[in-house]
Design a protein around this nucleic acid. Structure first.
Length: 255
DNA sequence: ATGGTAGAGTGTCTA
């Protein structure tokens, strides 16, 4: 089974690219972030014609997550237990959607950005991660993947220039500790060993052309799922040229 | 410190 995660930065503006990606790599399950659309706004015809089911949630123009699967899409759950509303303009429930696809529990996650370390949104980010960790600690009895845009660079090598991030989110000790907490609980990041390199490049300043990016899109597997991973790759070609998302898709093969 | 680009949708906000 082949699963993938992609921060698509608007599903409606890139539906043709999504369909081409599914076809090009024969993806069974695709997790999307930043869909920026409500479920009733999604263009589904091309996906359904290809045999895919879709589950999505999104409340406004900045947010939203989705799962697209051709191997089943059961027990769909939006958000996770213990995640209440915040003063965030973005509804937290639009940041996580889970389903069972082909016997694997998959969560499409869009971790809050944090904006600035002194912004209330940064506190919200850390709290959101703590609540996810607590909920996810009870999910490892079935093969489970926590996939998506984590908005954290776990190591200095995951940033093109850490000196430019002295006052920025994504690299703070608290964020890295939050990420490490999942690993301490037994989750394994399964893409890095097969697919080094960045997954996100800012639209500004020709960052992609100069390969000045961040590695922030990850797949964390439960022990049983991690043991099944045979390969992973980053589809950098998808990031090239006009009309690309600022993130590249990350693809993982399960045996 | 600021600004640069892109997508939501017409005002800025978010990333």
């Amino acid at each position: 089974m082949r699963i993938a995660t992609w921060n698509v930065n608007s599903l409606r503006s890139r539906i043709d690219r999504v369909e081409a990606l599914l076809d090009r790599h024969e993806i069974d399950v695709l997790a999307l972030q930043e869909t920026k659309a409500r479920e009733d706004q999604l263009p589904l015809m091309g996906l359904q014609a290809r045999g895919y089911d879709v589950a999505a949630v999104g409340f406004n123009q900045w947010n939203g997550v989705a799962l697209i699967s051709r191997v089943g899409l059961d027990d769909v759950e939006v958000g996770f237990p213990g995640m209440p509303g915040y003063g965030d303009p973005v509804e937290p429930e639009a940041r996580a959607i889970g389903a069972t696809c082909g016997g694997v529990r998959i969560w499409s996650l869009y971790v809050p950005n944090g904006r600035k370390p002194d912004d209330p949104h940064y506190v919200y980010k850390l709290d959101w991660l703590a609540r996810l960790r607590e909920a996810a600690s009870g999910w490892q009895h079935v093969p489970t993947a926590l996939v998506g845009d984590w908005n954290i660079c776990p190591t200095d090598d995951d940033v093109f220039d850490v000196t430019q991030f002295k006052t920025s989110t994504h690299v703070t000790p608290a964020e890295r500790a939050a990420f490490q907490g999942f690993l301490d609980d037994g989750w394994a990041e399964v893409t890095r060993a097969h697919a080094p390199g960045y997954t996100y490049w800012d639209y500004y300043r020709q960052r992609f052309e100069r390969d000045r990016g961040l590695k922030i899109d990850f797949v964390l597997g439960s022990p049983e799922l991690a043991a099944r991973v045979t390969h992973a790759f980053i589809d950098r070609e998808e990031r090239a040229g006009q009309g690309a998302s600022d993130h590249a898709p990350v693809v993982v093969d399960l045996g």
